[in-house]
Amino acid sequence: MKKVKHLIHRYPRLIFGLCMAFVLVIVAVLAPLLSPYNPYDLSDDMMVGPSAAHWFGTDKLGRDILSMILYGSRTSLIIGISSAMIAAVIGTIIGAIAGYLGGKADLILGEIINIFMMIPSFFLILIIVALFGSGLFKVMIVIGLTSWTGNAKIMRGQALSLRSRTFVKASEAVGENRMKILIKHIIPNGIFPIVSNTTMGIASAILMESSLAFLGLGDPNTVSWGQLIANGKAYLTSGWWISFFGGIAIIYTVVAFFFIGDGLNVILNPKIRNVTNV
């Protein structure tokens, strides 16, 4: 108990964020058990405000908002985590290669990173979704493919500084080939900031998915928070609860992952750690 208190005292944001995320995961996993109704079921209680039967009210088709939010957490988490992972993998590999190999590889990859950074990713996503249609899987990939540049920049910096460390030089001197050094030493030793950045990436991917759904470019067949807000848009004055609770859910999730990312950053980045803990 004392230990827990100590941990909370030391890393308040991380612990808080982890608790919030834990609740979210439980909700997503247990959604069918927790939901009072099937979120796809239409009922006669249309546009009912928050009440005992429908805690968060219902929408214009009589679907239970609470159930939709509970099920929607699955969509958000899956998309958020998967696309952040895709971005992490791409960013790590490209950044590590650029930073470690240096020279021409760095020049070329650096330019690629810059180009991707300059493209307004949201419009790119819009175009891709408009061209190839939307679906959970496609949205996931598209978000991942457009948000890796930050990770690449971070990893490149890490690899640049690791490259001059003795243990990397020593591995080269022993005869290890460069690809192996990259995988064995550069990436594992430089990955920590990527971890925290990726957690924050989850938050922004969830936001991105919601934005797409809000614009009607999400997967129409799955319940999602963005979609929910979009549905409620027309009824903001008469049925505030339709959009409101979806919005709260998004804020909650984004804050949770942001806290985790920020907390991890403090722990994993020795520079910040020394400043805050001394």
């Binding site: 003795t166 243990f167 030089k169 020593a170 591995s171 022993v174 005869g175 594992p188 030793n189």
Partner: peptide, 19 residues
């Protein structure tokens, strides 16, 4: 080449990957 020519570095604390 590596088998013929080896090196010992100055900083032993940084010569090995701590993981």
């Amino acid at each position: 080449l590596r088998r013929k020519a080896q090196m010992v570095f100055q900083n032993p604390f940084d010569t090995f990957d701590n993981r």
